[in-house]
Design a protein around this nucleic acid. Structure first.
Lengths: 255, 255
DNA sequence: TCCCGTTTCAAACAATATTTTGAAACGGCC
DNA sequence: GGCCGTTTCAAAATATTGTTTGAAACGGGA
């Protein structure tokens, strides 16, 4: 057993491993990632993975938890300051944060890339990931959208508008390579994120404004009494990702 | 050597392999696909892959070519009939066809899923794929968008609007699982494709109409002479994907 | 029927990846 | 310094996956 009372060393190794693992899993996903590449990237011995994390699956779990912790801190899509803004500006801020995650650096934020891989080719961690990472983001977005669409918007109205916004953002996670290959002029612009954020925010806000006008025009036209807005589920950013068995596609696994 | 003069049998085996390979590569991508699973799915012997296609890489190439051929026939995004429509309806048709590819059946059209994997974790076939599959689609879209935005639209205007539309569509390729998990009510609707197509078409057309009005309003306001529309590159749907070395991440490979 | 090229097959093989092992190195503490 | 739990390491054992092999089955002509 390891890490009993006060372990001094070794946590440096663990950290290096977690960071290298984040890179590798982000690039290739769980199945195609190779632990030899991870330990090489971390500059640690091959056996360290099993010693510290019990195996590839354990390392994956730990990496998810580590990244989730990290995401809570950087890239906030919720905070008291944000909530103090007008809904339009909350929306603009949300768009911008998401684009930063995807396009802000040479590589997307690793957790985002891992989510992408999970969506394409899920591991047993899929449920955890959706609940812990995607869901809070989408809930937060839906909350903003609801405020923008006004009290007459139905659940489906909110869902569709959220979907439109979310999809225009996640494109730059999944399709970043396509974007760079097909729109080199745009992609090379040092202010890509700002331009895209401006465009996407404007397009979505315009579409939502149109929807709202239509909804309220309908109301005036039909003289229907306003339905009360449904209570909104609180959108937390928190992520836990407690360890749980997660492994290879169909093989045996340690308890 | 195989398949000399007139090979009668064996092409059934090849077809079964190509179809099973399409499923497997679509699910897991090249690296994570296992040829044992492919031959099981095809109900053929393990050695058949090497006998007929020379190896995993050869099978991947052949699968891409096979699927590209298939895509040319089903799911057309271009045809004389389509071109006879008004731009708005061409756009609606384009949106609908793409959603059908992604959501129309239990699984997305395999070539689309393979493109998705290539975008996340490219193999050497990436260039081919983008050129042969994504590019023609995006070119066709850009053509329609240009018609909708009118002669005053700049290249960037067209690019941004195309991007908005494309991203709302590709979301349902990459994020299908997320969509189904987070919007179960919408996803369960037997007419999802129609509802989404209607919503997305309407949202995009509204946004583009707004852009056009702004562009033309600017013109009137500034009394600037109209620039001529740039000639548009012809957007073909054709795909070739001629065989070429395609293989594992960094290892040696047969000629 | 027999011949012969083609295709299939089970089994062996080779290459790649993951996990385990046992010994050595480290670091605080007596 | 010498002990002891922790951590590292190179090497070996396993497991998994891709490729090869040699023999057998097939099927259309001579």
């Amino acid at each position: 057993m390891h890490r009993s009372g006060l372990a001094t060393a070794g946590i440096a190794t663990e950290l290096r491993l977690l960071e290298a693992a984040a890179r590798e899993f982000a690039l290739h996903g769980f199945a195609a990632a190779r632990i030899r590449d991870i330990v090489d990237g971390a500059g640690v011995n091959l056996a360290a993975v099993n010693y510290h994390f019990g195996g590839k699956g354990g390392l994956y779990q730990a990496t998810l938890a580590h990244l989730a912790r990290e995401a809570r801190d950087a890239f906030p899509v919720d905070s008291p300051e944000l909530r103090a803004m007008r809904p339009e500006d909350q929306f603009r801020a949300y768009v911008r944060v998401m684009l930063m995650r995807y396009l802000g650096q040479e590589h997307a934020f690793p957790l985002s890339s891992i989510v992408a891989h999970e969506l394409l080719d899920p591991t047993p961690a899929f449920g955890q990931i959706v609940q812990g990472v995607s869901r809070p983001q989408l809930d937060r977005l839906a909350e903003i959208v609801r405020a923008l669409l006004g009290p007459r918007a139905s659940g489906d109205d909110v869902a569709l508008a959220s979907l439109s916004a979310a999809s225009q953002l996640t494109f730059f996670l999944f399709g970043r390579r396509l974007f760079e290959a097909q729109f080199p002029a745009l992609a090379a612009d040092p202010a890509v994120v700002d331009r895209l954020a401006g465009h996407i925010s404007a397009a979505c806000l315009a579409a939502m404004r149109a929807t709202r006008e239509q909804l309220e025009g309908e109301r005036r036209a039909r003289l229907t009494p306003a339905r009360p807005a449904r209570a909104m589920a609180k959108g937390e950013i928190g992520v836990d990702l407690a360890p749980q068995a997660v492994l290879r596609r169909s093989s045996s696994d340690s308890p």
